[in-house]
Design a protein around this nucleic acid. Structure first.
Lengths: 196, 196
DNA sequence: GTCTATATCCAGATAGAC
DNA sequence: GTCTATCTGGATATAGAC
């Protein structure tokens, strides 16, 4: 038995520290020295592992994309109906905003174009495409109202994403999972009091 | 008669140039020298007028807030019903995203906390509060479904804001005013095909 | 592979002539 | 008030010992 408690590998420590700092202060307000100090590694190690600051950001970008993809897959793999899939995904996103704040913030709140100009916009990445596909399929199967695909996706997930942004900005002061029921009812039933 | 065509005053030239550059590249990727060169003024003038780069950003912040407030006021001053007010505002926002892209981008898309840490988050500012108030009033008057105020505002405007973000990121390739009809129907009628 | 010490560059900001 | 030339700090990145 080599060891009972595995020490966090150095790469992970760097990545986690950088994620915290980037989300808290913004990429451009964090220096490599800040990461180096807070992660308790030398600056040489950072350059050895990631090649520089932008290398850290790129690694984080793909790490966070993977996490998002896992989140979406955890729902789609259940083969539920479209509406139920969307609801479970919304519930997960609201929860993760509280429990894994920085991952959600880096995925939904960071402006990657400003520090990773070569990467495609995150909204065009796999997990976000998958979210639009759920809605698309729901429209084809008659479960979701037919309309323009962009509008449908924005209407289904836009409210949740807006709440997440407001929560991350500190404008909403309560944990947002409490808003789940009201949110999904609004989304599916609409905000108009008149029923036709 | 002093002059027939007023030359753009130097302050405005600096502000407009900075707005363009900040939106295009991001605040931290623009140097004072970049602004200075593109605006055809000296660096000294910039420091005289705005005291520095952050001074430009702060002036822009309040300039853009004023523009947003004017936009909201142009609707609320008409004393329409809540739903009609929201619809007109959504229409305006979609249009302005095409015609005054940078103002909308700076208001809705920039992360001000990363370069103006002292300013309050823009979502807590007057025009955004006014948007929530329209929805709130609509709920009190029975025109809009009763629910949590944050959820209501997010449900009403979240879809539009999501479309605007996607458009600004270049993910949506068509002008978004064409999506207006589908968007408002989705918002008010809901995305569920089942009517109760 | 990891570290410290150092090099290099460029940004924001200022000084002072005009 | 506007300009050019200059200063200074701090950032990224590297060199080279261990």
């Amino acid at each position: 038995m080599k060891q009972t408690v595995a020490p966090e590998p150095i790469d992970r420590r760097i990545l986690n520290t950088a994620l915290d700092l980037f989300v808290e202060r913004g990429y451009h307000n964090v220096s490599v020295h800040d990461v180096q100090k807070q992660a308790n590694v030398s600056i040489g190690s950072i350059y050895n592992h990631f090649g520089g600051k932008e290398g850290i950001a790129k690694a984080l970008y793909y790490y966070v994309l993977n996490e998002m993809e896992a989140l979406v897959n955890s729902v789609t793999s259940k083969d539920l109906g479209a509406i139920e899939s969307c609801n479970q995904l919304i519930a997960l996103l609201l929860e993760q905003t509280e429990t894994h704040r920085n991952i959600i913030a880096f995925a939904l709140h960071a402006k990657h174009r400003e520090f990773l100009p070569e990467e495609p916009p995150i909204c065009s990445a796999v997990p976000f495409k998958a979210m639009r596909d759920i809605v698309q399929k729901g429209m084809e199967q008659g479960e979701i109202r037919q309309c323009d695909p962009w509008v449908a996706a924005a209407a289904v997930f836009g409210g949740a994403i807006r709440l997440i942004h407001l929560r991350l900005d500190g404008v909403i002061e309560q944990p947002i999972p409490t808003l789940y029921d009201a949110l999904v009812e609004s989304t599916w039933q609409g905000m108009d009091t008149k029923k036709e």
